[in-house]
């Protein structure tokens, strides 16, 4: 790839982006209709999702083909690195909004409701504590403790980070067997994590009376862990694609940004989980 230093790959016109836009149009409209109790919305959402999947398949197939054909030189590789890094940064900021909401509710708004004029006149019975579902919530509920399933989940995700790094080292040493085993283990750990997360949600709803509607605690708990779970799901799907690719013999010790990008993403969801474990479950 000696040409790569001075030459940058620019793709031919592509129809995939417009598929993506149509998918987003259908999904956005479908969700709005559905949320407003108009039943056709579901189908529109499903249709949009189908178009989105088609687009993702087609687009990534293009990218993978180009990559395997050697179209991406060193410069394109650097572009991918920058872009993935900035994308993960944008994801961090998305989570930051929800961590910020958790901080605000826990440290500012719940204590404020119990103190001063609002505590004296509006909610005399309300005392500030965490977890709290606010002064208007009258049912009993319990906190999701840190040392049951969440601790196991922490161990699972940390272990998955190790297996993924092992796979990466194997890829660099061109040990394809270890690479495949490492990836498969990582995916397995990811799916066990997700299963346990579902289990935990079931416990929360049935045993703890902890629901999405359980005030500030329920809101922050389910949105933070829910968005994290969604990201783990995405990461696991991406890892599956990477495993399929390594099984087909893709990637070389020098040229494997597809693998690395997904690995970065996986470590990112890992770190978010650690924050969740400390700030949502433990403290």
């Amino acid at each position: 790839m000696s040409q790569s230093a001075s030459h940058y790959f620019v793709p031919q016109p592509s129809h995939w982006p417009i598929f993506g836009s149509i998918a987003l149009l259908l999904m956005a409209n479908g969700t709005v209709l559905w949320m407003n109790q108009i039943p056709s919305g579901k189908w529109m959402l499903a249709g949009g999702f189908f178009v989105l999947l088609t687009m993702l398949f087609g687009w990534f197939a293009n990218v993978i083909r180009e990559s395997e054909e050697g179209a991406y030189g060193k410069n394109v590789d650097i572009s991918f690195r920058w872009a993935m890094g900035w994308f993960i940064f944008s994801e961090i900021m998305f989570f930051a909004a929800f961590f910020g909401a958790l901080f605000y509710i826990r440290v500012l708004s719940v204590p404020d409701l119990a103190e001063g004029l609002s505590g004296e006149f509006l909610y005399p019975d309300f005392t500030s504590a965490w977890p709290s579902a606010g002064p208007g919530f009258k049912e009993e509920f319990s906190k999701m403790g840190a040392w049951g399933l969440p601790a196991i989940n922490t161990a699972l995700l940390l272990a998955s980070g190790v297996t993924l790094t092992w796979a990466h080292h194997a890829l660099i040493k061109n040990n394809r067997l270890h690479l495949n085993i490492g990836l498969a283990l990582t995916i397995l750990l990811g799916f066990i994590f997700l299963l346990l997360q579902v289990e935990e949600y079931a416990h929360a709803y049935t045993d703890y009376n902890l629901k999405l509607t359980t005030g500030g605690y329920g809101s922050t708990f389910f949105l933070l862990t829910g968005f994290h779970g969604f990201h783990v799901t995405l990461g696991a799907v991406m890892l599956c694609v990477i495993l399929a690719r390594t099984l087909k013999g893709h990637f070389t010790p020098e040229h494997h940004f597809g693998f690395e990008g997904v690995a970065w993403y996986w470590h990112f969801v890992d770190v978010v989980w650690l924050l969740l474990f400390v700030l949502v479950y433990w403290l």
């Binding site: 605000y104 609002s118 709290s132 208007g136 999405l212």
Partner: peptide, 20 residues
Amino acid sequence: MLLTDRHFGTTFFNAAGGGD
């Protein structure tokens, strides 16, 4: 958060649930 407050009963922006 607005969307979930509107449709799914979260209380990020509702004092009754400890939000603001």
